[in-house]
Amino acid sequence: MVHYSNLAGVVRKGRGATFDPHNRFAPTTSEAVDDGWWQEESPTSLATEVREERTRSALAWNTSPDLPFDRSINPYRGCEHGCIYCYARPSHAYWDLSPGLDFETRLIASTGLTERLQEELCKPGYQCRPINLSGNTDAYQPLEARYATTRAILVLLLECRHPVTLLTKGGLILRDLDLLRDLAKRRLVRVMVSLTSLDTELKRTLEPRAASPTARLRVIRTLAEAGIPVGTLVSPVIPGLTDHELERLLEAASEAGATTAGWMLLRLPREVAPLFEEWLATHYPERAGKVMSLVRQCRGGADYDPRFGKRMKGEGVFAELLEQRFQMACRRFGLNDPATLADQTLETSAFRAPRAQSDLFEQE
Rank of each mutant, 00 (worst) to 15 (best):
H244N: 05
V237R: 05
V230E: 13
A252D: 00
E255C: 09
R248G: 15
S254K: 04
L249R: 15
R248S: 15
V237Q: 05
P236L: 12
R248V: 14
V237H: 04
V230L: 07
L249G: 12
A252F: 03
S235T: 15
G231H: 07
E245C: 00
E255A: 12
A253P: 04
G240Q: 02
A253D: 08
E251P: 03
G240P: 11
L249V: 14
D243A: 14
P236D: 09
I238N: 01
G257R: 11
E245I: 01
V237C: 06
V237I: 12
E251S: 09
E255Y: 12
T232L: 10
E247D: 09
E247T: 12
P239G: 06
R248Q: 15
D243Q: 15
T232A: 15
P229T: 04
S254D: 00
L246C: 06
L250G: 14
H244C: 06
I238R: 03
G257L: 13
D243G: 14
E255G: 08
L249C: 14
V234S: 02
A256N: 02
R248C: 13
T242V: 07
L249P: 13
A258D: 09
E245R: 04
A253V: 08
E247I: 09
L249E: 11
G257P: 14
P229H: 04
P239C: 10
V237G: 01
L241M: 00
P229M: 02
A258W: 07
S254E: 00
E245L: 01
A256M: 02
P236R: 13
H244T: 03
S254N: 03
L246D: 03
P239N: 09
L241P: 00
E251I: 08
S254T: 00
D243F: 13
L233T: 14
R248I: 09
S235R: 11
E251Q: 13
L249A: 10
T232E: 10
L250Q: 12
E245T: 03
L250D: 05
L250P: 10
L250E: 09
E245P: 05
E245V: 02
A256S: 02
L246H: 06
A256L: 00
L233S: 15
P229I: 01
L249M: 15
L250Y: 13
P236Q: 13
H244M: 06
T232G: 12
A256H: 01
G257T: 14
D243V: 11
E247F: 03
L250I: 09
G231V: 06
E247Y: 05
V234R: 01
T242Q: 11
